[in-house]
Design a protein around this nucleic acid. Structure first.
Lengths: 252, 252
DNA sequence: ACAAAAGTGTTTGGCGTACACCCATGA
DNA sequence: TCATGGGTGTACGCCAAACACTTTTGT
C-alpha cells in the first residue's frame, strides 16, 4: 500500500498506530532479519504497516508479513508496544513527505505522534519472496551480527524481539517455520545456537531434542559429505502443534 | 480526569488508544485486583485511562496508577496490547455517552475504534488509597478467586496479566511491592502460592528464598501466635534491586 | 502436656554437563 | 587410511522434591 493511497484513505486507518515486524529467517547457519532500505533515508528500517479501523492488530501484522514475504500461516507473536515520546517519528515522517513531495496539508494523518506495536515472525528463508514496496526501497536479509543503524527506535525494537525470542525458546519448540522440511540435527542445533548466541554440546542437544518427541527420523541421509552421513529429520506436525499449544519447560 | 474534560480536549489525546491496568495487591493471604464498578454498567471494569499526545505510554500508565492508588514508584510492567476487532468498545462507549447525556456529535473522539495497552502493577495493599473517579463509580479490591464478569475483553486482559506475572516469577524477585515492610516467611510463601495457584513445600521454600540473598532476618518475632513465633524478615533493598536488574533463574 | 506451626537436617532421584568412544563417509 | 563430523554410552554433580525430626509458643 503506497503512502499516497493511505493518505487518501486516512479515514480507514487507525490514527497514530503502526505495526513493526521483525522477520527472522535462517540461512548459512546464521540468523537473518528482513530489513528495508528506503531511498529517502540513510538508515534502514523494519518492515511495517498501519492498522485499518476494521482489522484487528494481529490481522494487520499478518498483512505486513504477507506483503513483505508472500507467506501466510506463519509463526507470529506480538512482543511489545513502543510509545516513548522521543521516538521522533514526526521529524522522520516530515522528511518522508518532503521526499515524496506531498504537501503537509494533505498529510495530517501521517504527521501525528505514533505508537507502534512490535511483532516478530519466524519464516523459511527459501520460501520467502522479499518484496520491496515500489521502486523507492530495497528489501534484504541482513545478518543478525551485522545490523546497521536503523531509523527511530527500530534498533531497540529489534533487540527486544530477539530477547523475547530467546525467552520463548524455553517454552516453545521452534524450527518448524525456520527450517526447510528436511534437515539434519546439526542444522537444527546451529539454529538454536545462533538464536541463543552461544554454543551447545552436540551430543546433549541430540538427546534433548529427541526426548521432546517432535522429530521424526527419516529414512534418508545427507550425501556428499566427507564424513559419516547425517540423518535427515522432519518435524512431527501433530506432536509439534501439541507441544506448541501446551508449552514445554526446558532451560537453555 | 472526567470524560467531559477529555472530550473537550480531545486534541490532546492520542486517538483510539487506551491504557488498562491490572493492579495486584495482597491481603488476607490472597491476591486481590483493584476493580471499578461504574454506575452506568452492570459489569465491572479494569481501571484505565488515555494517552496524551505528549506523554509516553509508560507515563500514561503511571498516571492511571497514581490516580487510582495514590502511589508512585511502583512495579509496573507492560504485558500486551489488545486490538481485536470484536472488542465492542464502540457499543459500550455509546452507552456511556447515553448515561452521561453527552450528544454523540460532541464525542467523535470517544466513538472510534480503540486499541488498549495492558499493564500490570504490584502494590502494597495497606499503602493503597483506592480512589473512585467522582460519584459515578466505586472502586474495590476483588479477590482473584472471585472475579466478576468484566466489560469488553477485560477478563481476557486480566487473565493475560496473571499469566505474565506467573512467568515473571521465574526471572524476578517479587514481594517487595506487595508485602508490608516486615513479614514472615510464611506470608511470603502464601504470596507465591496465591500467584502460582498451587501449594509449595514450606521447608524447601524457606531454603530457596534464603539462598537468593534478598532477605534480611530481623531481630524480631511475631507474637500472639499459639505456636512457635515466626521470625520477621525484610527485603535487603540493595540486593533486591540488583537481582531485579540482573534477573534470576528459578523454576517454580 | 498438647496442638500447631517454625525451623533444620537428610535422603533420593532426575537431569544437565562433560566427555570417552565407536561409526560412516569422501578424499 | 586418515580426517571429519555423526551417533551412542556413561559417569559425575547439583538441585529440587520429599520427608523425619526438633524447637518454640499459647492454651
Amino acid at each position: 500500500m503506497s503512502l499516497e493511497s493511505i493518505l487518501n484513505n486516512s479515514n480507514n486507518y487507525q490514527p497514530g498506530l503502526s505495526i513493526d515486524c521483525v522477520i527472522f529467517g535462517f540461512h548459512d547457519n546464521s540468523l537473518k532479519v528482513l530489513l528495508l532500505k528506503p531511498k529517502f533515508s540513510e538508515k534502514w528500517t523494519l518492515p511495517g504497516g498501519f492498522v485499518t479501523v476494521d482489522d484487528s492488530i494481529d490481522v494487520a501484522a499478518v498483512n505486513v508479513l504477507k506483503e513483505r514475504t508472500g507467506l501466510t500461516g506463519i509463526f507470529l507473536r506480538q512482543f511489545a508496544t513502543f510509545g516513548d515520546i522521543n521516538r521522533d517519528e514526526i521529524d522522520f515522517n516530515t522528511k518522508v513527505l518532503e521526499f515524496f513531495k506531498i504537501p503537509k496539508e494533505n498529510a495530517k494523518w501521517y504527521l501525528q505522534r505514533f505508537v507502534t506495536i512490535g511483532y516478530y515472525a519466524l519464516v523459511d528463508f527459501f520460501e520467502t519472496i522479499p518484496s520491496a514496496n515500489g521502486k523507492y526501497e530495497i528489501i534484504e536479509w541482513i545478518d543478525l551480527n551485522n545490523i546497521p543503524e536503523l531509523i527511530l527506535d527500530h534498533n531497540k525494537i529489534l533487540n527486544k524481539a530477539l530477547e523475547n525470542l530467546r525467552l520463548e525458546l524455553n517454552s516453545l519448540p521452534i524450527g518448524f517455520n525456520l527450517l526447510p522440511e528436511k534437515f539434519t540435527m546439526t542444522e537444527l542445533q546451529k539454529l538454536y545456537e545462533t538464536i541463543l548466541g552461544r554454543e551447545l554440546d552436540r551430543r546433549n542437544f541430540f538427546r534433548k531434542m529427541n526426548s521432546i518427541g517432535i522429530l521424526k527420523k527419516l529414512d534418508e541421509k545427507k550425501s556428499n559429505v566427507s564424513h559419516k552421513a547425517p540423518n535427515f529429520y522432519c518435524f512431527d506436525t501433530e506432536n509439534y502443534q501439541k507441544v506448541l499449544k501446551d508449552g514445554l519447560n526446558m532451560g537453555w
